[in-house]
Every structure is written in structure tokens, then in C-alpha cells.
Amino acid sequence: MSKIVLTRVDSRLIHGQVVTKWLQQSGANEILVVSDELEQDEFLQSIYLMAAPPGVEVIIKGIESVKGYWKEEAESKKTKVLFLVPDLPTLKAMVEEEIVTEGIQVGGLGGGPNRKNVVKNINLSEEDVAILEALLDRSIHVYFQAIPEENPVPIQKLIEKYKTL
């Protein structure tokens, strides 16, 4: 059975740090991207597929299609998976489906309306904070870490900062 070796929330999905640092750090040999938007865009898919290094399979699924994939196809494989989602609502769906059950790394959440910058690449909304607090209530370890050389920061600290802004 495939095993998720790193779950990462990053609005940029597959980019330089993921390819050069997190794949090596995690030992993953497969990248599973869950994004409804990306699943519908064949052109963007081709760009993400080209971004992966040789020997690393990239699978792109939407929220609904990943459920069947994870229960059927991933069961028969023996891969180490870097599991990428672009945002916290997508992550929430994966936790509710019990696909993601442990350690979650938040690496990048972009800006936008009703979002507050709490550190480097992390901008949170009220909805994001509610999702993060619900994950913590489930005793899921959630932390911020942009690159492997940095120490992980407990997500509680970012939630506290959000509430003071």
C-alpha cells in the first residue's frame, strides 16, 4: 500500500523547493496533487508534470476523484507519496475522508481579500483558522515549515498571531 510520507499545504503546489528539497527530505517517489482546479486544466497539468524530476510520478486528482484513487489504485502500489494540496479547504476534505490522518506541513498560503499575513509565505483567513483549529482539536500535528533547513513552527503560534492582527 502507498504511504504518505509528507502532507504539504502549498498554494504553489509543485515548485523548486518541493522538487529540490522536500522530495529528497521525505524520500517520496510519487507526488499526488489534489486540486479541483488543476484536474480541469490540461495545460497546467502538463507544466506540473514536466516540473517533476525523472523517476518521480506525478498524479493529479480533484477532491472527488482522489477518493476512489486512494482507496483502489494506491492500495495496490508501494510508493512513498508527497501529498500536496493548494489550500486548507482541500486539506479539510482529505482529513474528513481519512486519506490524511497525521502530520501536516503548511508551507505556503497566498494572499488575497480577507487574508492576513502571519509569517513569510502564510496568509490566513477566518475560514483557514477555523480549519486549523479543528485539525488541532482532532490531535493532528500541524506545523509551518517553508524549507527543511528551518525549524518547524507549531501552527498554534500562527493562529495566535492571526488573532492579534
Rank of each mutant, 00 (worst) to 15 (best):
K61L: 03
V95M: 11
V100D: 04
V129I: 04
E133D: 13
Q105P: 02
G112Y: 09
Q145E: 12
A74G: 03
K61Y: 08
I63K: 13
L124G: 01
T90L: 10
T90D: 10
H141Q: 14
S139M: 13
V118S: 00
N121I: 10
E72Q: 13
Y143M: 04
A130K: 14
E102M: 09
A130V: 12
L136T: 06
E96C: 09
A134M: 11
Y69P: 05
V95C: 05
E96Y: 03
V100C: 00
R115W: 00
P86R: 15
A74I: 02
P113D: 14
L135E: 01
Q145W: 01
P89Y: 06
G112L: 09
R115D: 01
S65G: 08
V129P: 01
G55W: 07
L135H: 05
M94E: 06
V142S: 05
K71Q: 15
K61G: 01
V85L: 06
Y69V: 11
N121V: 08
P86S: 11
E75A: 14
I99P: 00
L132K: 03
T101P: 01
L82H: 03
G107P: 05
G110P: 09
A93Y: 12
V81H: 00
G110M: 14
V58L: 08
V142Q: 02
V100E: 02
G111H: 12
D128N: 03
S125H: 02
I147V: 15
P86C: 06
V119F: 13
N114V: 07
A74E: 01
K71E: 15
I99G: 00
I122S: 02
E97S: 14
I147F: 11
R115A: 06
K67V: 12
G68W: 07
P86F: 03
I59K: 14
E133Q: 14
S65C: 05
L88D: 04
V58E: 04
E75H: 13
I60R: 01
V66N: 00
K77T: 07
P54R: 10
R138F: 14
H141C: 10
K71V: 12
L132T: 00
N123A: 06
L135T: 10
T101N: 08
N123Y: 13
E75M: 14
G68A: 10
L91H: 08
I147R: 05
E97Q: 14
E97C: 05
P54G: 07
G62D: 07
I147T: 13
A93R: 13
P113W: 08
N114C: 05
F83D: 07
K77C: 03
N114E: 13
E57D: 15
N121M: 09
K80P: 04
V142A: 00
A130T: 15
E127L: 08
E98R: 14
T90F: 08
I140V: 07
V142H: 00
T101A: 02
Y143D: 05
Y69K: 05
L88H: 07
V85H: 02
G68D: 12
P113F: 12
I63Q: 10
V66T: 10
V118P: 00
K80R: 13
A146F: 14
G103V: 04
R138I: 09
Y69G: 06
V100M: 03
Y143A: 11
D128K: 04
K116M: 01
K61C: 06
A146C: 11
L82P: 05
K71G: 09
P86G: 08
Y143W: 14
V100N: 02
V85A: 05
K67L: 12
E73Y: 07
D128L: 01
